[in-house]
Every structure is written in C-alpha cells, then in structure tokens.
Design a protein around this nucleic acid. Structure first.
Lengths: 333, 333
DNA sequence: AAACGTTACGTAATCGTTTAAATAGGGGAT
DNA sequence: ATCCCCTATTTAAACGATTACGTAACGTTT
C-alpha cells in the first residue's frame, strides 16, 4: 500500500505538497498538482484515514447508539432512523459506527466507553431512560452529542424528538370526533419521555372535550406482543370501551392479534388506532389507522444537526427539535 | 486527555513498559505493574485506539455492507443479521461500521472504497448481485471478507448462506402433502442466488412428485408491496391454482393485502405459504405459514467465521456454510 | 545594487501507540 | 576479579498523515 511518502517521491515533491494537493489547503502550482495527481493514480494511492485521524484529531465517523431488543417490531423505528442518518452522512463523507445498548443501562455505559476510545467526531444516542446521571461523565466533552427520540435527563446536546403529546392528542381527538367517549389507552412502560408525553396527549384530548378520565381505561405494560394481547383482552372484557388507542407499535400488533383471534369487529364493535406506520398495518383486517412517526426524518435531522455542530464549533445553546407526527387514516376507526 | 507518555512519567517507567502492561505482551514485575495501574487510574487513562491502529495495523472494527432499501419489510432480514453480528462482535471487543449499498452497484463500490481507507480488519457483505467482476479489485486483499445471504460471483471469502432450495422445497412439499397439485409460485427478481435457488426448490418438489411445471403458475417481479398484490391477483384471477408459495417477504405482504381485500378464503379457497417469519405473519387473517430464515444466526455465524480468519491468519480454502430454514406452520394452509 | 515582498514549496515536529534492539544490574561460574 | 548470562526495563524507530515554520528564487522598489 502506497503512502504519502511514495507519492511525494514519485512526484518529486515533498509530502507537505502532496498533502496540500489532497486537501486543497494551500496554493500549489497547476503543473505540480498534475505531477502529484499522476503519481497518486499510478500508485493507486489512498490516504490512510487512521494516520489522518491521529494527526488531525478528526475521524469523519460518528457513533450511533440505539436501544434495540431482539424483537421484531420495535427495532423498525430505530432502523429507519439509522437509515436516515446513514443517508445524510454518506452524502457528507462521514461514516457510521453502530452500537446497541439493548435498552440496558450497563450496556449503554459500556458502549459509550468503547466509543469514547474510538475517536468519533460526534454521537447520536437514544438514551435508555433511567434516572442515573451517568450522562454527565464521559458524554459531551470530547464531541457533540445529539439525542434522539427520548429526552435525556441532562441536556448537554441538541435533541430531535417527536411531538408525542400531539400524536396521542390527534389520535384521541379523532376518535372523539367519531363519537367515542369511552376510549381505552394502552401504553408501554411509563418513565420514558415518549410514553409519558403520549399519555399527556390522551388526557389533554379527553379533558379538553370534557370527558372524565377513567383510570381503568388506561393500561400500561412492558412492550411486547403478549402484553399487547393481554392488555387489549382486559380492556375489551372488563371495561365498556368503544375504542382503543394503543400508543406503541409492538403493543398495537399484540392488540390486533387478540382482536383478530376473538373476531372482534373493528371498527364497529371497537375502533382502533395504533402507533407507527409500518407496512403490516395495511394488511390487517381491517387496515389500521395509525399515528405515523417521521423516523427517517429524525435520522436525517439528527445527522444534520450533529454535523453542523462538528463542522462549525458552534457553542450556541442546545435546541430541542420537535418533528410532527401524522394521523394516517385507514379503516379501523 | 492523558497519553501513554503521561502514564509512563507518572509511574516512573518507560512507555514501552506501560504498553506491555496494558497488552500483557511480556513479563513485567508485579511491583511495576502496580505502579502503572495506579498511574493509569489516577490519570483516567484510556488508550487511543487510533494511534494503536496506526501502529499495529489492526483496528478492531469490521465493516458491514448491506443492500437495504427504504422499504419497511425487506430491511428486517438484514437488520436481524446486523444484530447477530453486533452481538458477537461486542462479546469479542470489536466494533461495527455500518454501510448501505442501497441494492445498487455504484453505491456498493463507493462504499467499499470508503471502507478500504478506513482500516477495517474484515468485512461482511451481502453483495448486490450483478454480473460485474468488481469484487476482484479492492476486495479480499487487505482483509478477510465474509459473504452473507447471497453467493458472490467470485469466491474470495467464506460465505454464510441459507439453504434456499431446501426452504422452497419444504414449503412446496408441505402443500403437496396437503393435496395441492396446482401450486402458484411468486418470486422476487431472478438473478440473485437466493431467488434462483428457491425456484429450484419449487421445481424439485413438483418434479419429484410427478407434477408438471406450468410456466404460467410462476410469477416473478420486483420486490415491493404493489407487485405482491398484482402478481397474486394475476394468479388468482387467471390461473386455476389452489395454493401459492411466495418466496419473498415483501411480496408475501402484498399477497396478503390482495387476499384480504378480496376476501379470498385462506386456506379453503387458496392456501398460502409466505417467506420470513416476522411478527406480522402472526396477525394476518389467518396467521401465515412461513419459511423462517435464521437471520440472527447468519449474523452470528458470519461474525464468528470472520473473526476466526482475522485472529488466526488462516488461509485455508474458503468454505460455504449453509444454515437451514424452518417451516413454521400456522393457519394459512 | 541593496533591501525587501511574494510565491511556491520543503523540513521536520507531531499525534499516541507498538516493538525490535539495546542496556543496566544482579548473580553465578570460573 | 573477570566473564557471561539472565532478567527487567529503556531507548528510539517506526506507523502515515498534518502543519507550523523555514527558505529558495525571483521580481520590484529605491
């Protein structure tokens, strides 16, 4: 593998000149440039990015740390985000190091340490939402950080979030408009900013319309298929609800599983709105009305904001971006 | 940020000794070790992996290049693979650089170039299946390569594939056992080893049972929801089939979309077997019988094989691993 | 012609490691 | 006392780039 020295030698110039030609960092005569380019081509020279990183303290790679579990559906959201990030980075000459915290604090801290010794120029992270202040040490000093999806407990970076409250609000308002007054609510565990905000949206919609909030209509559980099934069952069998809003995609699937199995007529018997617009929501019986989160756009935006921080050492105070969800109306309500 | 020099100075030893303590590469007296560890702790020293990579020509990161499109369902398979890889690498102190070729040759070559200048220790790639011999240059000389899912046209690395023929064979055999003789077949574009092999499995099952192959029963199209819908429609409306095997997950979803919309009775009117065991297949009406591919296991295996190549500079001839698919029986046939 | 500015490029230090080669110091064996 | 051999450690040269400085050559001004 040819190094810059080989190129310099072949072109009859110094390594400094070669470097300046490559990076266009100072004037070099056309004639000289040509000789350098020729030498580079002839030797099939490719700059060694590790050496470059060592010297310049920039790596042109950014880290991504997401909390995905080995469960089909939940990953989708973060994968779409990852694609958005990837796509933006690619266009700007950056690379992506991909890590997973498994929704687990210990793994998360571990992965951050690994990333810290990897010379990343920036980090995009969907924090596991525990109460620890672990973020304080190790994060945000060496490189900019952008938080996605969930608000961090300590704001030392920009964040790209979805307007979760608005999402739930829209869904419930729509159900109310359709005449529903007894609306069940199924959510993943609370304590995450996402689920907390969505619950607020539900309450806001009801209160605004003068509907009392019935605690028994609100079901919360760990996000998995089985729970979606169970919580829906509880709601349908024990409460007199006419509609359910499920504020989580995995639970939505479990819910549809139950309704399908029990042959519950949707939307006549019970109207349903689910969360996240995945393809499968188009082929349920009936196709599912959902709140769509702009996942790909979150990724793009996160990458954009991060690169801006990296490339202009902008120290403006951190801002919180909120992307708007969308109500996709199908046949389930 | 403290460097190895600072540690050496504080511990009153040379950098060489510190390095040997860190890497356990030669004997160091207990007493000296202790001083070094103390100094490291006090300075919160973390080795600079970039400098380390530069010197040792190892980066402890491997690249992953997958062909995913901005389409919900198809990504799932590769994402599961990515998780399998991630998980294995994490346990062995490696990192993952994640790239996407968008199922597009130009992007693929571009990304390989980027990776080549990134000092990866190895690469796992699901090649876009074009006829070009692009793989020849740039791949396989600097680091080991493992191919996944699709067989490369040039074998310069191990490959981890699924026994696609067996998958299709099992599905069709099962349909035949259920008494079907007129079995439609829907596939994504041919020319990929995956789809070609599956088609062979279909033919094998029919021929073995003495059923003639009817060309009109075989429908091929680009893998997207709409095509799944259309091809199913063609088959149902124009041919007298009693069952369909759809050898592709995106098309399977489109197929279910059509059947659902047209209220075709599954399996009485038409029996269905789809491809890939995603959660959504459990909540269709009826739940879908599918061929399950061991995606996560492919990832694990790929990482395992790759790391073995990296860590023992094994130059044994390349081997092709075939993982077995599984028939998951539900209610659709 | 001396003094100086400009232009175009070269020299060498530097980033933080690893590692081959050199070395210091202590203990036998002679 | 001399020599030699171990052992534990140090010295210093890489790795391949970037970049602060230095400088040669030539033109312009006085």
């Amino acid at each position: 593998m040819a190094s810059i020295k080989d190129v310099a030698q072949k072109a009859g110039v110094s390594t400094a000149t070669v470097s300046h030609v490559i990076n266009d960092t100072r004037f070099v005569a056309e004639e000289t440039k040509r000789k350098v380019y020729d030498a580079m081509k002839e030797l099939d020279y490719r700059p060694n990015s590790v050496a470059r990183s060592l010297r310049s303290r920039k790596s042109k790679t950014i880290g991504l740390l997401v909390p995905i579990l080995l469960d089909d559906t939940s990953n989708f959201f973060f994968m779409s985000i990852a694609q958005g990030i990837q796509s933006y980075l690619k266009d700007h000459g950056y690379n992506l190091i991909f890590s997973n915290s498994n929704e687990n604090l210990k793994d998360e801290i571990e992965q951050i340490k690994v990333l810290n010794s990897q010379f990343i120029d920036g980090l995009i992270i969907a924090p596991t939402n525990h109460k620890y202040d672990y973020l304080q040490d190790g994060l945000g000093q060496d490189y900019p950080v952008v938080y996605i999806d969930r608000q961090p407990n300590i704001q030392q970076g920009d964040s790209i979030l979805v307007n979760n409250q608005q999402g739930a609000y829209m869904a419930c308002k729509y159900l109310i408009k359709k005449g529903h007054k007894k609306i069940g609510y199924i959510s993943g565990e609370l304590g995450y900013t996402t689920s907390d905000e969505r619950l607020n949206g539900y309450k806001e919609a009801l209160i605004e319309t003068g509907i009392d909030i019935n605690k028994h209509f609100i079901k919360v559980g760990i996000s998995n298929f089985q729970n979606g099934y169970e919580l829906t069952k509880e709601l349908v069998e024990n409460e007199e609800i006419t509609a359910i809003f499920i504020a989580n995609n995995v639970l939505s699937m479990g819910a549809m599983g139950y309704l399908q199995e029990m042959k519950v007529k949707v939307p006549n018997q019970i109207a349903i709105i689910g969360y996240d617009d995945y393809d499968w929501t188009k082929i349920t019986n009936p196709p599912l009305t959902v709140i769509k989160q702009p996942a790909y756009e979150i990724g793009k935006k996160a990458a954009e904001v991060l690169l801006r921080r990296i490339e202009t050492d902008n120290t403006d105070s951190y801002t919180e971006y909120r992307l708007e969800p969308e109500l996709i109306i199908r046949k389930s309500c």
